[in-house]
Write a protein that binds this DNA or RNA. Sequence first.
DNA 1: GTTAGCACTCTTTCCCGGTGAGTGCTAACC
DNA 2: GGTTAGCACTCACCGGGAAAGAGTGCTAAC
Lengths: 339, 339
Amino acid sequence: MRILQAVTDDYISTAEPVGSRTIARKYGLGVSPATIRNEMSDLEELGYLEQPHTSAGRVPSDKGYRFYVDVLMDPVELSPAEREHLREELLSKQRAMEHTIHRAARLLSALTHYAAVVVAPRPAETAVRGLHLTPLDECHVLAVLVTEPGFVENHVIELPAPMSDEELDRLAARLNEFLRGKTLRQVTRGFLSRLREEIDSRSVYDETVELLMNSLGSGSEERVYLEGALNLFEQPEFRDVERAKPVLGFLEQEEAVASMLSGLCSRAGTRVVIGQEHSRAEMKECSMVTAAYRIGDSVVGAVGVVGPTRMDYARAVSVVEALAESLSEALSHVPRRPA
Amino acid sequence: MRILQAVTDDYISTAEPVGSRTIARKYGLGVSPATIRNEMSDLEELGYLEQPHTSAGRVPSDKGYRFYVDVLMDPVELSPAEREHLREELLSKQRAMEHTIHRAARLLSALTHYAAVVVAPRPAETAVRGLHLTPLDECHVLAVLVTEPGFVENHVIELPAPMSDEELDRLAARLNEFLRGKTLRQVTRGFLSRLREEIDSRSVYDETVELLMNSLGSGSEERVYLEGALNLFEQPEFRDVERAKPVLGFLEQEEAVASMLSGLCSRAGTRVVIGQEHSRAEMKECSMVTAAYRIGDSVVGAVGVVGPTRMDYARAVSVVEALAESLSEALSHVPRRPA
DNA sequence: GTTAGCACTCTTTCCCGGTGAGTGCTAACC
DNA sequence: GGTTAGCACTCACCGGGAAAGAGTGCTAAC
């Protein structure tokens, strides 16, 4: 185990296959290269190490990394200065919420030198704070939904029939009263039909409400912020464009990344996915460290970094965790007003 | 000139330095390779062509490309099918405006196979359609600004003193009446002070309005949508990561790209910037074709593609122009409602 | 169980000559 | 005078070895 650890540590920091001599010299294990060679040979047979070719040093396999992450790795603590920096950047929220999320992604990539991904809170999971309807023309309305921590999401809907400004205002006021404080997920069919009964029963209203809720509920894709994709090129394994292209191509697809991350982070906690463990073929050369962030106690989104399997897992985990923590704090901090 | 055109055309399509034999064979100019060699030698002396090394073919210089773009290039028309495709994608605007802009960027990159950049309309240049204030907590308000074609922009502002929901509502209603139909640029200091006099003269209001207008006016950065950055890797000149990094790094900086594009496209029309003509060092290996798009008659944003100097200028120009045109149409199409 | 010694493997690097594309120059041609 | 054929020359681009170097596996001794 100490040898596996040494090999992994060394490979992570040098990106060169590591040989028995190196281990003996740099990591005083008190044994000679020959012994280490024997052990490494065993580790290879067990599947924890691999050899790029016969006369090269050893490299951890995905299985090796997995063991390293689960058992061997020395956890690192973020320095107090870095921690403070994070909180400062995220908690001073004089800007729109999108800025906070965006900045979170930038911080993550800057602190790890990997590519960073942040999935913005799903509107369906966050409580509604306000709904505004702005007429665009006779039969189009722009619906702006403001959710709890201050996110804004907008949709254009086509009215089944023209509606006056006054009618729209009334509808908006009614809906506001009704939705405020609930998450869209909580707004079930039952709720809706009750609302419809309460409201003026003109069928235009009826259809409009239906449309609105559909649009707001289903149409809300998750926004993904990708930062520092270029960092990947600093990694020797992605110096070759052909190797980097699949990964970058995947990361550019917002929906795919969003569904991957939110699938992974349905529960709180940090996840590490290593190489072949990925379900997506494009990612099988990469590792990913992700953590969920919360508003109050409910998980609403995820942050993560993507790098080579030869990733500095210890640091990545600590940065991702600290960032998820600070982001949760930033989003939860706004005191709820009484409804 | 015919030889320069032939060399440029050929180099654009093959990416290989082109020799006298090739020209003679592929472009029946009715003269022998030797003649072409003499001419090419002259063209090199005049600075229109360059030789990578003594025994290679010729390649257009930036000056050569400039002459090609200004004088020689055969303009291409987009096929009716492509034209129709563009309009269809952009004019069916059942979605939020951001989607239209985003899609414009995607279309641009898909049609040209270069990197595409779209600068979203500056809120300050577009007429206000509505302003909504949503309280976040006792002293923070989320201001949502809806501008003419349906764009939404939001800002968090800190109130100088707590304000009740009712007060906020009244303020919002007043501001709405006042701002609707004007662009933020039109809202001058004079306007503002008149507004302040009209409104309840409590100093809280006063300061709040001041804050709001500042925040909305100055704080509004231009959003840049970048798509297809990966396309650059398909180009032989960017196959090497080291060559591609500066460009990509530059394109990732939203503010820099925004200011470059909006500087370039203050007036309507298409611009081509070739290699060394760029002010930014990172772009001196690239060319860029940009065009402004409008809402009604006023220029509000720009679209562009970035590729190697060996760009298919003819096609790039026609695609960029067609897209800018369709986008203008899409954004202007919403009939204004009487104020 | 550990270690030194040693032959062996395999990649990497560098050199070197051959090949081919393309040029520039010169002299001839119309 | 412009155009062309001919020819020597240049230079990047392979492909094949040879040499170097890193690291291993095996064996025999400790």
